[in-house]
Amino acid sequence: MSDTTADAAERVTVRLDGGVADVRLNRPEKRNAIDPAMFAALVATGERLKTQQGLRAVVLSGEGPDFCAGLDFGSFQAMQSGERVSATAELPPSAGPARAAGQRAAYVWAEIPVPVIAAVRGNALGGGLQISLGADIRIVTPDARLSVFEVNWGLIPDMTGTQLLPELVGRDVAKELTYTARIVSGEEAVRIGLATRTDPDPLAAALAMAREIAGRSPHAIRAAKRLLDLAGRTDLASGFAAEQVEIRALIGSPNQVEAVTARFEKRDPDFGEA
């Protein structure tokens, strides 16, 4: 086992409870900065959760006062000699659109078939912000600090940010944030569409939302995520056709019947796994 692989086992922690995965970047003494071991841990954790039995929702956060302050300083020092430290991360094969280590560390969360909720406090800068963009929902503290920080280092956001950010805030705002690298508060992030809502305790709010989602039909939730992720990325005819495929599969299925029955009987539903 290489040092990177050994360290990766400590960089991200996962706790499963009631179908909810509580995932935390675990390098608080470094503001959860991303080094090769963190890249490897993020990808490995996300890949594992893609096939996790009984998974209903994921909450992604950082230990300590920050979500993630971006790349480790050692990465920038290595760039002075032309080295790209992320390329040294040991990763499993990928068939998805993201191939580079940084891209996979962010986009793997978008590929998980259940909702992913990012709980952001403190700094979410550069690569840290891009990791949060892989989540379906972002709950942030009002005073969180978010930034497309890369231009400060003479770089561009290369962890899927150039493609995902315009979907959230619009092309012009994405350009303004990228060109200026200005820091956005959690409150402003919500106003411009970079975050979903604020909460003084985003982790508690995210876990509560995840538990609520976990109580819904897993087949319906997964189908909804598939369809919503198509929006704006395919033509309307294909999107409308996909809706009909999903609804036909759901109507009369055991979990759909259970959802209806439970509501009429005024009890909690007992859903089978997706």
Rank of each mutant, 00 (worst) to 15 (best):
P36R: 15
D3N: 10
E83A: 14
I156F: 15
A242C: 04
L16K: 02
V173P: 03
A9H: 03
V23C: 06
V23P: 00
C68H: 10
T162I: 12
P202F: 00
V140W: 00
V12E: 01
A9L: 09
D229T: 12
I131D: 07
D35Y: 01
D7M: 07
F240M: 08
E243A: 13
D172S: 13
R11W: 09
A57K: 01
G96R: 11
S61C: 08
A37G: 03
T198W: 09
R84C: 13
D201I: 00
R104V: 03
E111S: 12
D3S: 10
V23M: 07
A21E: 05
V59T: 08
A98L: 02
G272C: 04
T4N: 14
G193T: 10
D199Y: 15
L129M: 12
D158N: 12
S2Q: 02
E243N: 11
R121M: 11
M79G: 09
D17P: 11
T196H: 08
G272Y: 12
G102Q: 14
A237R: 14
T160A: 12
R11L: 01
T162E: 13
P269L: 09
S185F: 04
I139S: 15
T51E: 13
G19L: 04
I34D: 05
G102H: 06
R263G: 08
M1S: 10
S253F: 01
G232H: 01
P202T: 00
V140H: 00
G252P: 04
I251S: 05
T88P: 00
T196L: 07
G122S: 03
G102R: 08
E167Y: 07
R99E: 10
M209L: 12
P200F: 04
D72S: 13
L55G: 08
G128Q: 05
A9M: 08
I34N: 09
A259H: 11
N32Q: 10
R145S: 10
